[in-house]
Design a protein around this nucleic acid. Structure first.
Lengths: 319, 319
DNA sequence: CACACTGACGGGCAAATACTCACAGATATT
DNA sequence: AATATCTGTGAGTATTTGCCCGTCAGTGTG
């Protein structure tokens, strides 16, 4: 079987999906799959492997693990969160995003299932991109997806970690990319940009969002802001020296979670942070490097929800 | 912080969930899990198995093909089919035969790849013709292709949808056209025809066929039987009024899949239907118009395999 | 208190699965 | 058209997994 329109690529993916289905859902051995699909056993194995590596196979564990739930409860109590999810860590791969991406996708899916129109605003980042990839395709023309920040450099080139478009495409919703670059050249340019109707409209949508998902960036040489080229390594060091510990949608904040008043902040074009909002603003972040950034965001009530890993949750609660 | 509640049962399930998570999400081997959880690898294996058997692990395949396989499985279960293929429908061209033709060709190709002699019997119809057109040329002198019914009118003229000759030509096999017209003038003539050695031989080949592909005709003014001029519009209405819902190789049947005892049936010269056969008899059919005809054929076990479209499969399962 | 029963454990082994490597055919490049 | 590159394949091999089975601790029973 193949799609009516059969490019060699899609035929192969079809077979991979089929093999994956037979393996994981129907419980066939690869030998049986090989016979059913009329290929060699090795090829069947490759197809199954491809189904996994192409992320066609989505696995979730449907059981509340007590320790994780305890941690989530403690975090909620300590930082007054509306929602908190803690997923098990793999001690050897603490940075793995898959786990929290699955959890974040489940959270997002709850909102998406609403028959009412929902406005969903998203930040950027690897965690959010991974989250969207864990979401099943579903038809949600009633919702709206809006980006909280641009995905362009000043020169117009795009960054790869754009979750908005992927999400909108996956669920068939209208979407609003953020119509500005991440940073303006200077405050004056920013003021002019903000006058545009498209910009005002998009920011207004972000304010109204029924749910927001954001990533959290740390302040070191491996920070997203540096890696993606928005800030130089030297600038980053200067920021960190002046007390910056993290950023959300490019708004840089100190250890109390207060946005820092600096040259960079004066040029950030992103939608304003929904500080202490009554609507869910959920951070998706994990890893030792982001600890201080996450803690500050929680302290400053920059977010009211968190999805993180067991190991990170423990260390957030530690001192 | 403490565990919310720790019955020996829930602790074990907890570990199972954790092991399942490490295995399926984080991709550890059972050996690694054993080390991380501090148990023997056999225990780790049991935990993973428990996570599966307790349905803690939910797998889904995120590809359009997945829906088709679900439908195929449901159809197989419901109607006791040996094989079932459901191909994605193109929403823009629901009646398009290309998809199912490709699928049917793939199915056929599996049989053709056998080095052993295989007897393949075919019905007629647009779907089968399209199927043969999707088949690559291959050299199969070891096989035999035999037609289950004539392609001549009583006057000796031929109908265009003859798949047997095309198939035999394409794969270089000897072939046996059906040596009778579709309909005899009357039962007496039919009885005489059936005496001929060529006829008996051909019918015998059909009975021995290792694989049979047939189309399914509906009972309306656009039915193949009418369009090809074997039955007049008025006769068709009469047939439909007397409970006929479909036909396979000109054998007309009711909604239970029982061949109707009527004037037409008494004159049908086609090879007898291989009712409830142990060899694959696969119907290739799609479209809203054929729904009742396909359903009845499945109910009556006139075929034990089906290749159809996603949309048709959905509607077959619907009520 | 002996005894059967239940259920988990770990050893061991066969089956299943993943990986490596060399090769053939296709594709791109010159 | 010849050559380099890439992709997919099959064979062989190493690793991983599933499962049988003997053992043993805990438990209820006569």
């Amino acid at each position: 079987m193949s799609t009516t329109r059969s490019s060699p690529e899609s035929v192969r993916l079809d077979d991979a999906a089929r093999a994956g289905w037979l393996y994981y859902v129907a419980g066939n051995t690869q030998d049986e799959i090989a016979r059913k699909l009329g290929v060699s056993r090795q090829s069947a194995q490759r197809l199954v492997a491809m189904a996994v590596s192409e992320r066609l196979i989505k696995v979730r564990v449907d059981h509340p693990i007590a320790r994780c739930m305890d941690l989530a409860q403690s975090l909620s109590d300590r930082f007054g969160l509306m929602s908190c999810e803690v997923v098990p860590s793999d001690p050897d791969a603490p940075g793995l995003l898959t786990g929290i991406a699955i959890a974040a996708a489940a959270e997002l899916e709850k909102t998406l299932k609403s028959p009412e129109r929902r406005i969903i605003s998203l930040g950027t980042g690897r965690a959010l991109k991974a989250t969207v990839e864990q979401l099943p395709r579903m038809a949600c023309p009633q919702h709206v997806v809006v980006s909280r920040l641009g995905n362009m450099m000043q020169d117009g080139s795009a960054t790869p970690y754009n979750a908005t478009i992927s999400l909108a495409e996956r669920i068939g919703s209208p979407h609003y990319p953020y119509p500005l670059p991440v940073l303006a050249r200077d405050p004056a340019e920013l003021a002019i940009m903000r006058q545009q109707e498209a910009v005002r409209n998009t920011i207004s949508l972000c304010e109204q969002a029924h749910m927001s998902l954001v990533g959290i960036g740390q302040m070191d040489r491996n920070a997203p802001l540096v890696v993606d080229g928005f800030v130089s390594g030297a600038e980053m060091e200067q920021l960190a020296a002046s007390g910056a510990v993290g950023e959300i949608t490019s708004w840089v904040y100190d250890q109390s979670g207060r946005v820092i008043d600096c040259d960079l902040t004066a040029r950030v074009a992103s939608a304003p942070l929904p500080h202490a909002a009554e609507r869910p603003v959920i951070a998706v972040a994990t890893g030792a490097a982001k600890l201080a950034a996450i803690r500050a965001a929680l302290i400053g009530r920059l977010v009211n929800g968190l999805i993180t890993s067991e190991a990170t949750a423990e260390r957030l609660l530690a001192p």
